[in-house]
Every structure is written in C-alpha cells, then in structure tokens.
Amino acid sequence: MNVQPVLTKTPAPAFVRASSISSLPVTSRFNPTVLLIIYALLLALALGLGSAYLALKGDPPFGGVRIGPWQTWPKLGSPEADPYMRAIVAYGGDVPLATGEGLAVTARTDNEGRELDSGCSYRIGAVMPAARIWTLTLYDRDGRLPASGSARSSFTSSEIVRNTDNLFFLNLSRDLSAGNWLQLPPSGSFSLVLRLYDMAGAGGANLKAEDLPTIERLGCGS
C-alpha cells in the first residue's frame, strides 16, 4: 500500500527537472518573472509609503464629527485614538487638546461648504457653547498664525465684545472693519480653530450645530 504513491510520484521530479532544464536557456537571456516580482515589490513600496505619507499629512480619516461648518475628532485627545490619529499627531509633532482639557473644533469651510478664502469677507456669530474660556484663532493655509504684526489673529471669550442680548458677531476680512474684527491673510485659503477649554459635557458628544457659531460669507472680491 505504501509503495504505490512512491511509484506514481517518481516521474514527477523527472518532469520538473526536465522542464527546468529546457527553460534554462530562456531565463538566462530574459526572465520576465523576476522583473514582474521586482515590479510588484516596487509598486507595493511606492503605493504603500506614498499613501501612508498622504494620510500622515492630512486629517484623521476616521472618527471625525462634522457639526455645521466645524469639524472635530473627539477621540484625538483620548487613549482611544486610532492608529491614524496617533501617527498623524506624531508626524506633525502635535500635542492635541486632551479630552479632559477641552475640545478643539476646526473650520475650513463656511456654512454652505465653500472653502474659506481670504479674498472673501465673513461674519461669525452669534453663540458659543458653555466653556470656562474659549479662543478662536485664524491660521493661514500652512497652519501658521498670519504674519500681520499689529493685528490680532485670535479672540478669546473675554476679549470679544457682545451685544445686549449676549450675542457676538466677528467680522473676518482683509480690510479694516468695525466691531470684532480679524484680518485675513493676503491670499489663499485659511482655517479657523475654536478651542473650548474646560468645556461642559463629555468631549463635545452632545454638541449640535446651533450651539456653535455660524460662518456666513458676506461677499468676495474688493
């Protein structure tokens, strides 16, 4: 019984050997298989590292919450942050606000989803969620504070002037404007970051669009 398989297998190695010998002259001249393997590995490296690099430079792909024009990643500052969040934080050398400290929300678009453009003017208002102190900061396209020396680039809850109904309006434009005003950078897109320090409620889980200020585009070009 045991002899049978051995007997049937004997021709097979001979066949393999014969075929490998017969293909040897071909491979010594041109071997597409080796080239294809190298191609596959290079493709894997280029696509894998390229996509990882793009992911590291961007926003965390998962766990984002969109509240009106504002966007936030509630788990970014918590031990439950996903691997993308951790990689992005490490790559950028960032230290995100921890969940126990407060919540940061970012806006890159206005209420209607159009990218914030420093060629336009905007009005932000009129309510803020309850927090011990909040700061609203304007950054240029590269995430830097605008280089304008004298003009401010941020407002805090203590600095902003409110009307008698405890509402506030903040104008964003390149040219001087009355009231609460932040100067936009000379060109390009910009972003706004609202930091709510010591915010009531667990990590902004209950935030609704009507709790956060709206970003209304007034007009473009001047």
Binding site: I37, A40, V89, Y91
Partner: peptide, 28 residues
C-alpha cells in the same frame, strides 16, 4: 503582479501607519 503589488501596498501602508509614532523623531 499589479494585483499582488496593490495587496502588498496595503500591508506596507498599515505597517507604516502603525510604526510611525514609534519611529517619529520630530514628534513632541
């Protein structure tokens, strides 16, 4: 080969993301 490359690329991507915090030198 292209298919194999793309599948391996997914592995390379995941490995790069998972190890980025460990090997980042300019992190906080």
């Amino acid at each position: 080969a292209t298919f194999v490359g793309v599948v391996l690329a997914a592995g390379v991507h995941i490995a790069a993301i998972l190890t980025a915090p460990r090997y980042a030198e300019q992190d906080a």
